[in-house]
Amino acid sequence: MSDAATAPRGPAWPGSVRFRRPSALPGFGLTFGFATLYLSLIVLIPLAALVLRASGLGLDGIWRIATMPRVLAALQVSFGLSFAAAAVNAVFGLVVAWVLTRYRFPGRRLLDAMVDLPFALPTAVAGIALAAIYAPNGWIGSLLAPFGIKVAFTPLGIFVALVFIGLPFVVRTVQPVLADLDREIEEASATLGATRRQTVLRVVLPSLLPAVLTGFALAFGRAVGEYGSVIFIAGNMPFRSEIVPLLIVIQLEEFNYAGATAIAAIMLAIAFVSLLAINLLQAWSRRRFGHV
């Protein structure tokens, strides 16, 4: 890539002086120009190509593909399981964040570090590891098999993978808010006669709600688009355990670019909606609570 060479130099961008508020610091033209050019080449133009291709199909073209039974089934699988996984992560993520923030116990630092593993571990590695554990002869799969519970190669397996990859989001959004939460509001609640349970339910949890919802939305968004960790454990049965991203890959392999584009356009729209939802949530939280 030779973007740097083609990036406009500071003075070459005549609008810069009026465009930004005057500042003594140099380099705005150079860095702003390079950053926007780079972002355009790497992110915006490729995404625009997708939007262009999708608009060629027309809204009814996309609608026709989106309502095909197999696509509908995949959308249902992806959204339903992503929602369930994000919900599980909201509950357990809150517990993990609480424990890591409020209690001191041996191994806490290690536990804290482990939370980020799903961010750091390549998804394909997580996928084959989860498949191995939950296969009928795996560590957990063999424990569940006598009860007739099959995890790997069923929708339940997808759920497990989506819990894994969404795990850090709620923990990491709640932790800083919980750490900043003034202990005095809990004491105030106690002096007013509230039991510990009432204090947690009426004071602590409502204060954490925006952070939990943000974490939920992030985990959900990530789960809907997830591919690598899911395909190994999913079984990938059409109508049953086939996720939307996999459907895109299948369309591509069949050289059905229109189908792939239409499904991708739907996912892109969903990504933007969830991004918007998260931003609105944080703006609301800032306005109401004075923190993020």
């Binding site: 950053a35 926007t36 972002l39 992110v43 915006l44 133009i45 490729p46 995404l47 190509a49 997708l50 291709r53 998804t123 968004g221 809907v224 688009g225 997830e226 591919y227 690598g228 939307v244 991203p245 996999l246 895109i248 890959v249 591509l252 670019y257 792939a260 584009t261 991708a264 996912m267 892109l268 990504a271 933007f272 969830s274 991004l275 931003n279």
Partner: peptide
């Protein structure tokens, strides 16, 4: 807006991220 644009790749499915280059 620029900050939001920088975040886009986080919220796009990896499969879509690959697809855009195939389409291009």
């Amino acid at each position: 807006l620029l900050i939001t644009l920088i975040d886009i790749p986080f919220s796009v499915s990896p499969v879509v991220s690959g697809l855009v280059f195939v389409l291009l």
